[in-house]
Each structure stands twice: as C-alpha cells, then as structure tokens.
C-alpha cells in the first residue's frame, strides 16, 4: 500500500517536474490540439498540473519567519478551494529553508513553515486527514545562487498533490 502510494506520488512529481520545464511551445497561446488541452493537462482545472501552475503550489517566507503574508494567504485560499473541489487528492506540504542557517535549526524552521500552511488550509475547511507535512530544511534548494534572490525562493512551503493514500 505504502509502496503504491509512493509510486503514485513519484509519478505525479515527475510529471509536474517534466511539465514545469519550459519547452519551445510554452507561452504560445494557440492550442495546438492533441493532448495539450485534454484531461490532466495544465488547462484541466481538476489536474494537479493546473494546481501547480494556475492555483500556485507554493508560498514564500521572510528570513527565519513562518507567518503567512497576504500574498501567501491569497495563494492558500486558492489551494484550499482546489483541494475541497478535488477531493480525490491529498497533499504533502513540504517546508524548506535557505542555506543561511544550521542544518538542525533549518529542519525545525521548515517544519514550522509547513505547519503554518497546513493550519491555514484546515481553517479554510480542508480535512486534516488529507494533509501531511514534512520538512526538508536546507536539503532541497530549487535556486542555487548564494544571494537573497535565490534565498527568497528557497524559503518556501510547497503543497505537493498526491493521489489519495487512504483509498
């Protein structure tokens, strides 16, 4: 069961990763047909890809902070709505920190951030049983420069959509 869940999760993560890589058609507003507008595509509002790209899968934090700013709350309102509409999915909220900090502290800080998102989504009506949290501390940066421009993007909580692991 657990293996299946992880396999499904992995597949969806890979799919998201693949689609987030810009290719030469991206930005072209003309739908070229084929599978591009079909179920599961970025234009299907019930797809995890739509959640990632249109709803917005992540919120950012100030240095050492885990409170949610107004931009973050708007994104999370959208996430909550999507999750309540698409009840077949669950989510894992990943908390992250930038590299400017010690390893253990950053793990704890990432957990605070993921938890802040989880609590907010629950307040908006998402069932707690559909949400899990994990912290990666500073282990999984997406931006690699050692400047604030990169740090700002790494101080994040990402809501990763998964197939329902209870079903």
């Amino acid at each position: 069961m657990k293996h299946l869940t992880r396999a499904v999760l992995l597949t969806s993560v890979l799919a998201l990763a693949a689609c987030s890589n810009p290719d030469r058609f991206q930005g072209n507003e003309v739908n070229l047909g084929g599978g591009a507008g079909g179920p599961g595509s970025a234009s299907d509002p019930t797809s995890p890809l739509y959640f990632q790209q249109s709803v917005g899968d992540r919120v950012l934090f100030a240095v050492d902070q885990s409170n949610l700013g107004s931009d973050a709350q708007i994104t999370l309102d959208g996430q909550a709505q999507w999750l309540m509409t698409n009840s077949d999915y669950t989510a894992i909220i990943e908390g992250h920190a930038d590299e400017q900090g010690t390893r253990e502290y950053n793990l704890a800080l990432g957990a605070r951030r993921a938890n802040a998102v989880q609590e907010y989504l629950i307040q908006q009506g998402v069932s707690p049983s559909r949400l899990k949290v994990v912290s990666y501390g500073k282990e999984r940066p997406i931006e690699i420069c050692s400047q604030e421009a990169c740090y700002a993007k790494n101080r994040r909580a990402v809501t990763v959509i998964a197939a329902d692991y209870n079903s």
């Binding site: 253990e104 793990l107 704890a108 957990a111 605070r112 993921a114 938890n115 802040a116 949290v133 912290s135």
Partner: peptide
C-alpha cells in the same frame, strides 16, 4: 532528528517535531 548518545550508550537525546513545534 538530531540524535546523540548518552555517555553510557544506553539513551539517546533527540528532537521530535509535532504540529510544527520541535
């Protein structure tokens, strides 16, 4: 995370995070 042995090797101190609190 953050485990360490006691000097007699019988106990471990560590951090546990629950509900965002460590």
């Amino acid at each position: 995370f953050a485990p360490r042995f006691s000097p007699d090797g019988r106990a471990v101190v560590y951090s546990l995070t629950q509900g965002g609190n460590t």
